[in-house]
């Protein structure tokens, strides 16, 4: 009973925050609305005993959104003032596609005769996850790690052609170049 109430509260928070991402009138609010949505989903994961993954979701997504906030503001040029903003193209088709998708997915969720549960969760889910990724699913981990490493390198190469000190030396004023 209590679980049900908590779930519904979190579900409403997750979806409402998700909607707020595209309706908020400042970049900071949009970013942190998304963070709230993630935190709500992370807490739902705790409800189904996925403690490790739930906490990891909260951890990573909060961190990511904190960094994302910087990008949002850096690239979108907003000061803390609340600017009404609506930067969309093709709003109606997008809305139609989104609603269509929701209807299809919802119908699928409700109409497909889902099988009943097979097996039971392990007593210690964290240990079982650790054993899975280090034993039977080792290959997944071995793929994921180089992918993550490649991402770090690739992202750095893309985003940082030359840092400010590379180009200008220690004296940044030398960069007072004509524009």
């Amino acid at each position: 009973m209590l679980t049900g109430i908590v779930f519904w509260v979190l579900a409403v928070v997750a979806v409402a925050a998700g909607v707020a991402v595209f309706r908020a009138d400042s970049m900071a609010r949009a970013t942190y609305a998304l963070a709230a949505s993630f935190i709500a989903v992370g807490l739902v994961l705790l409800l189904v005993d996925l403690e490790f993954l739930g906490v990891i979701t909260v951890l990573m997504m909060t961190m990511e959104m904190a960094v994302m906030g910087i990008y949002m503001i850096m690239f979108m040029g907003m000061n803390p003032a609340l600017m009404p903003m609506d930067m969309v193209h093709g709003k109606r088709p997008a809305l139609a596609v989104a609603i269509g998708t929701f209807v299809v997915l919802a119908a699928g969720a409700l109409l497909v005769p889902w099988p009943t549960r097979r097996g039971a969760p392990a007593a210690d889910l964290v240990t079982s996850l650790g054993e899975a990724i280090m034993e039977s699913k080792m290959l997944v981990m071995m793929t994921v790690s180089p992918v993550l490493f490649a991402t770090i390198v690739a992202a750095l190469v893309l985003a940082l052609p030359r840092g400010r000190y590379d180009r200008l030396g220690d004296d940044l004023r030398a960069g007072k170049a004509p524009r």
């Binding site: 579900a11 979806v15 991402v21 595209f22 997008a94 989104a98 998708t101 997915l105 919802a106 969720a109």
Partner: peptide
Amino acid sequence: LVAAALFSVGLY
């Protein structure tokens, strides 16, 4: 259902 709603909002 909740997951579908999140997905659709994101898609939009």
